[in-house]
Design a protein around this nucleic acid. Structure first.
Length: 331
DNA sequence: AAGCAAATCAACCGCATTTGT
DNA sequence: CACAAATGCGGTTGATTTGCT
């Protein structure tokens, strides 16, 4: 036997809201707040289910809603955010004050998608359509999932849009094993989105399961004297680590199909249990590349080879392990 | 002005996750 | 720990509006 909707048990109204219903709901929430949504309809004198009341409030009655057409700036931001977040409409909406996930979703499906296609861009992958077609004909079955589907925790691939790090800019991430991560954002549009991602949950549940993560553009150094500008990438400050060699992660090395969970399962770094707060700096790939020339790069020799080899993955894992161990020791 | 198709919008549905008991 | 209820999310649908012939 199939499920029934929440409106089924009682004879509750469905469909469009009347002005009278709106007024009742608005008055009730203005005077008492919404509290528990399931009790709202009863308290407000409405023949609706709580879910319907919540939706009406969020999408229509909320006083902070911005109405009217989307500006070109908003549309651009939606495209940029979609390139990073995929169809995570609520997270996209969180970056556009006064806009709801529902209207952004509608705009995307009815308008933006079409515009992108007209410009020769695939709205799912944000790549040129010609490239996507080529991929389709060359790739075989077990490749990364399309970005249109939200990656699950299980299926998180280290894939990102090629221009992602341009949005990323310089971030200062403050890791605290009790509080999770917080971020001091810079002024680029996506930066303040990122901490919202990071600050919920613990390390494994947040930063290392988002597309932001370390992989695209970072250098890892286990030396506490190095700083962001010296090593051109990713570092942490803290007590001296036992490892004297610095660890480097080549930007864009080809580990697209490795899962973060595979790293996180094996690295003590991600399992820190004592309270500590460590600043972590990440800068954009562009900045990285501008500064990287003086840095010894263990992957440079393999530049023209297929980098997606077990050896590469192994080196990368070991570097992460080393970083993890020294970080763990500093906690 | 009428008819039709496309575009837009509001709301529902089912599922996943979170919270409470 | 198990279960149920509540909440939140994204996909989808269907009604309405808009634009074109």
């Amino acid at each position: 036997m199939g499920r029934h909707s929440c409106c089924y048990k009682q004879k509750l109204r469905k469909g469009l809201w009347s002005p009278e219903e709106d007024e009742k709901l608005l008055n009730h929430i203005t005077n008492h707040g919404h509290g528990c949504w399931s009790s709202v309809p009863k308290l407000a004198g409405l023949q609706r289910c709580g879910k319907s009341c919540r939706l009406r409030w969020i999408n229509y009655l909320r006083p902070d809603l911005k109405r009217g057409a989307f500006s070109p700036e908003e549309e651009n931001l939606i495209v940029e955010l979609h390139a990073v977040l995929g169809n995570r409409w609520s997270q996209i909406a969180a970056r556009l004050p006064g806009r709801t996930d529902n209207e952004i979703k509608n705009l995307w499906n009815s308008n933006i998608k079409k515009k992108l296609r007209q410009r020769g861009i695939d709205p799912n992958t944000h790549k040129p359509i010609s490239e996507v077609d080529k991929d389709k004909t060359t790739t075989t079955s077990n490749k990364s999932p399309p970005s249109s589907s939200s990656p699950t925790n299980q299926d998180f691939f280290l894939e990102r849009p090629s221009d992602f790090s341009e949005y990323f800019g310089l971030q200062k991430l403050n890791f605290n094993s009790n509080l999770g991560l917080s971020v001091t954002p810079d002024s680029s549009p996506l930066c303040s989105m990122i901490p919202a991602q990071f600050s919920t949950g613990n390390m494994v549940g947040s930063v290392f399961q988002t597309q932001v993560c370390v992989k695209p553009s970072v250098t890892l150094a286990s030396d506490n004297t190095s700083n962001f500008f010296d090593n051109g990438g990713f570092s942490w400050s803290g007590p001296n680590s036992s490892s004297s060699s610095s660890s480097l992660v080549k930007p864009n090395h080809n580990l697209e199909e490795m899962k973060w969970s595979e790293y996180s399962m094996n690295t003590p770094f991600f399992n820190g249990s004592t309270q500590n707060s460590q600043p972590i700096y990440i800068k954009s790939e562009a900045e990285y590349l501008a500064n990287v020339s003086n840095i010894t790069d263990p992957w440079s020799q393999s530049q023209n080879e297929n980098l997606n080899t077990p050896e590469d993955s192994d080196v990368f894992s070991k570097d992460l392990q080393r970083m993890a161990v020294s970080f763990g020791q500093s906690l």
